[in-house]
Amino acid sequence: MLELRPSCECCNKDLPPAAADAMICSFECTFCADCVEHRLGGTCPNCGGGFVARPIRPASKLANNPPSTNRIFNPAGCEPAKVA
């Protein structure tokens, strides 16, 4: 099950479970669409992978499957990964 992290790792913008602009990589690194496009150039700075829109978990499922409350904020690491 997806962790549904609560914020963008670059700008710390809140990304609640229904956020339409939440983007994730295959490792669930979470960023807002603005940072993905304008700061990261579509490449995850942690793993070098690409992004997809994070699915929205139905509100009826949140009580038994809550989103994460663990905020990851690393603005210094918000440069695209150098993949060889």
Rank of each mutant, 00 (worst) to 15 (best):
Asn74Phe: 12
Ala84Met: 11
Asn74Trp: 14
Asp34Thr: 13
Ala19Met: 04
Cys78Gly: 03
Thr69Pro: 00
Ala81Gln: 04
Lys13Tyr: 10
His38Lys: 13
Pro67Val: 07
Val83Phe: 05
Leu15Met: 11
Leu2Pro: 10
Asn12Gly: 01
Gly41His: 00
Gly49Phe: 00
Ile72Val: 13
Glu28Leu: 15
Ala22Trp: 00
Val36Asp: 01
Met23Trp: 04
Val36Lys: 04
Leu62Val: 11
Phe27Asp: 15
Asn65Pro: 02
Asn70Asp: 15
Met23Phe: 04
Cys29Glu: 07
Cys8Phe: 05
Gly50Cys: 05
Pro67Cys: 08
Glu9Thr: 11
Pro55Phe: 00
Asp14Pro: 09
Asp21Gln: 07
Met23Val: 01
Glu3Arg: 14
Ser68Arg: 09
Arg57Val: 07
Phe51Asp: 05
Pro75Ser: 00
Pro66Cys: 04
Thr69Leu: 11
Cys11His: 08
Ser68Val: 10
Ser7Ile: 08
Cys78Phe: 09
Gly50Val: 03
Cys35Val: 02
Pro67Gln: 10
Cys8Asp: 05
Pro67Ala: 13
Val83Arg: 06
Met1Leu: 14
Cys47Glu: 08
Lys61Phe: 15
Ile56Arg: 05
Val83His: 05
Met1Arg: 14
Met1Gln: 13
Met1His: 13
Ala53Ile: 09
Ala20His: 12
Ala59Tyr: 11
Ala22Gln: 05
Cys29Arg: 12
Ala53Asp: 13
Leu40Gly: 01
Ser68Gln: 07
Gly48Trp: 06
Lys82Asn: 07
Phe51His: 02
Ala22Pro: 07
Phe27Lys: 15
Pro58Ile: 05
Pro45Glu: 08
Cys25Leu: 12
Asn64Tyr: 15
Lys82Leu: 11
Asn70Met: 14
Val83Asp: 06
Cys35Arg: 01
Asn70Ala: 13
Pro45His: 07
Pro58Cys: 00
Val83Lys: 08
Ala76Ile: 10
Val52Glu: 08
Ser68His: 10
Leu2Met: 13
Asn12Met: 02
Pro45Val: 10
Gly42Cys: 00
Glu79Met: 11
Ser26Met: 15
Gly42Ile: 02
Cys8Tyr: 02
Thr43Gly: 05
Lys13Met: 11
Gly50Asn: 05
Glu9Ala: 14
Gly77Gln: 04
Pro16Tyr: 04
Gly42Met: 03
Ala20Gln: 13
Ile72Ala: 06
Arg54Cys: 02
Arg5Asp: 10
His38Ser: 11
Gly41Phe: 01
Cys25Gln: 09
